[in-house]
Design a binder for these strands. Structure first.
Lengths: 217, 217
DNA sequence: TCGGAAACCCGACTCTGGTAGGGGTGATGT
DNA sequence: ACATCACCCCTACCAGAGTCGGGTTTCCGA
């Protein structure tokens, strides 16, 4: 933690403000003499060519155009001395396990406290590994990141909205009918109306199109 | 932009590191005499009670437990003098339109350049409104935020993986058969195998369970 | 007062999805 | 040499999805 050593860090995140903020924090509280923010993978290689490989590379898992996986592989292959720490906005355990297999040195969800973050960084700089096994509390199996849509916004009648909400949960018509105290035929009618309104033919086409949305009554 | 005035800002984001980074940036480059970082909605009200309403409140749209909508409504209602700027990680136009209806003063995707960000903040502090009409370039209709899963990781045979990938796009068995040059019956066989392996009964149950995942061949 | 829209019900039909049987090939490994 | 597994094909059957063409009530606005 001696600020006079020549520890250098690179932060790769597609949000410039975030990358900059983290880089500043690394310089201020983690004993990094140098910490630069980089927003695109292409800039990363250029930066390394010019300034050499950093002591620590801190890369966001969700880089634009998929994931950071190829970037991590290449970093590990071409610059094996560089310590690798992956951060992710959603603390999905699947991500952690996936990067662990790439011989990355650490993984952190993005929502950790700064102090915790500093702990992880210093541990990794000491040569240890750091994998937070505390998954994100908010998302167990239900993804909370759903934009609520009202039935009216989709041009649907209130009743159609209720049916749609149940349909998006994967319920068959029969069970929807039971829940709303309706005949299965009536449900089918609403379903057909929804399809016509949203320009869709199957209910699976509907689900794939509206994935990530939620209907609030 | 006079750093001697008493412009105060609050940054509400569930990622402490990010909130802190943005707050630092506001103090350094946006003429804010005071800029505090807040990570939970409950802390927000407490902070306002103690220190008064800020000149500018900068709130992340994706707060834990759904969205920032109720927070924004309450801020607008109880502290109408406070300028409101919403930022969001995914620059979804639907979000922009949704917050615009709440009489928020501005919206920004999180991936803008810091200079652009500073521009927006100063415009809003001058009393103007700022709604970036440049949607996020990366996501048109295809959400890139999908964790790639290999067929083997799910305990599936390679062929089953191919079928699953097409099934998750909402294709019916017949078209899957055409694409893979198979009989519809054979496709059904693979489908049944997938169901058994993943512990699922319908294909809609499958889709709702694997929403947000992608199968890479 | 007369549409029209929304919600509800019914019967009958077609098509897809999914399961149950049956069988056949080739590659792999014991 | 035999078993196993992935892969492929077939017939048949049944339940669910979705459509079509009827119908009733209620409510709201022209």
């Amino acid at each position: 933690m001696d600020p006079t050593d020549n520890t250098s860090a690179l932060v790769i995140d597609d949000h410039p403000l975030v990358a900059r903020g983290i880089a500043d924090y690394l310089r201020a509280y983690c004993g990094c003499a140098q910490a630069d923010a980089i927003c695109r993978a292409s800039d990363l290689w250029e930066h390394i060519e010019r300034h050499g490989a950093p002591t620590l590379a801190l890369v966001d898992f969700w880089l634009p155009g998929g994931t950071a996986l190829p970037v991590l592989e290449r970093l590990r292959r071409d610059y094996p001395a560089t310590r690798l720490l992956v951060i992710s906005g959603d603390g999905d355990v699947a991500i952690r396990d996936k990067v662990r297999r790439l011989a990355v040195d650490g993984f952190l969800p993005k929502h950790v406290e700064p102090a915790h973050f500093a702990l992880a960084v210093s541990a990794i700089l000491r040569g240890e590994v750091w994998f937070d096994d505390a998954p994100c509390a908010s998302l167990g199996g239900e993804e909370a990141r759903e934009l609520p849509l009202s039935a009216a916004e989709l041009g649907l009648t209130p009743r159609q909205g209720e049916v749609l909400a149940l349909m998006l949960k994967g319920l068959p018509n029969k069970r929807i009918a039971q829940m709303l105290s309706l005949t299965e035929q009536t449900v089918k009618e609403h379903v057909s109306g929804i399809f016509e309104r949203l320009g869709v033919r199957n209910r699976i086409e509907l689900i794939t199109r509206l994935r990530g949305k939620r209907i609030d009554a």
